[in-house]
Design a protein around this nucleic acid. Structure first.
Lengths: 124, 124
DNA sequence: AGCATCGTGTGACAAACGTAACATAAATGT
DNA sequence: ACATTTATGTTACGTTTGTCACACGATGCT
C-alpha cells in the first residue's frame, strides 16, 4: 500500500528493516552505520520521513518507538523493477526474474513470489 | 565521460537526443512535449542544467544553440543498469542483457554492445 | 517603421533529499 | 542524589529536481 518510491538512502533503511524486522531507531542505525557513515540523527530523520510517506510503520512498544517496513520486500522491489524496466529500458512486460537469480537480496522463494507478482499485473 | 546520473526528467531529454541526434531546444521540446506537458521553459532549463552536469553538450551553430547527448546511449544505459543491479537488486555481476531483448530503447546491435560493455568491467 | 515571434540568459520558487544539531525528558549507572 | 547516556521531538540548511516566468535582443512580417 505504500505508494511513494524510496530514495537511495531510504532503500538502505528499508533493506535493514526487511532483513531484521521491526526494530528501534538505535538498532536500525547501528546496522546501517556499518555501511553508511550517517549520524544517528540522519537515520532518525530518514525513519521519520519514511513514516510520513507510508514507507515505514511506527509503533509504540512500552514507550519505545519501533519501526517496520510498510511494504513487503518482494512487493516493493517488484515495483521498482517494473518502473525501471518501463522508464529506463522501455520494456512492456517486465524483466524475467530468472535474471535476478544471483541476487543477495532475494532468495529463491522470494524470486518465485516476484515472478508471480510481475506476471499478475501484466495487464496494466 | 559524463559522470552524473540523469534524473527521470533528464532521461526523457536524453532519449530524445539519442533518438534524433543534435537538435535545437525547440526541436527537443516539440518532441518531448508529446510525452510530457512541460512548458518550453522547462525543457530549456533541463537542457541548461544537463550541460552543466556534462550530460549534454551544447554547440553554437551560426548563432543557434544545438544540443547533443554527452554520452552514448548504450554507455549511459549500461551504467544505469549496473547501478540498479547493484544498489537495488544486489547482484554482483550485472543483469544478463538477454533480458532486455524486448526493449524499445535498444536494438539488437546495441544490446550486443551493451553485453560487451557490461562484461568488460566485470572486474571493478 | 512597428509589431509579433523566437531564441537566449537569468531569476524564481516549492518540494524532495542528504545530512545533521539542539533541547528536553526519561532511564541508568555509581 | 547526581552525572551521564539515551530517546524523542523539533529545527535547520545546503543541494537537487520539477516547473516556470520575465526581460532583452535579433529576425521577420506587414
Amino acid at each position: 500500500m505504500a505508494d511513494q518510491a524510496p530514495s537511495q538512502a531510504e532503500l538502505v533503511v528499508l533493506k535493514q528493516l526487511w532483513a531484521s524486522g521491526e526494530q528501534s531507531a538505535r538498532e536500525v542505525h547501528d546496522q546501517v552505520a556499518t555501511v553508511t557513515d550517517w549520524s544517528y540523527s540522519t537515520t532518525r530523520t530518514l525513519l521519520a520521513r519514511m513514516v510520513q510517506k507510508g514507507l515505514v510503520e511506527k509503533r509504540d512498544s512500552h514507550g519505545l518507538a519501533l519501526y517496520a517496513a510498510g511494504e513487503a520486500k518482494v512487493s516493493l522491489i517488484g515495483k521498482m523493477v517494473k518502473s525501471f524496466s518501463q522508464k529506463v529500458l522501455e520494456l512492456d512486460g517486465s524483466l524475467p526474474v530468472s535474471a535476478f537469480s544471483d541476487s543477495k537480496l532475494l532468495d529463491e522463494g522470494e524470486l518465485d513470489e516476484l515472478s508471480r507478482l510481475l506476471e499478475e499485473d501484466e495487464d496494466d
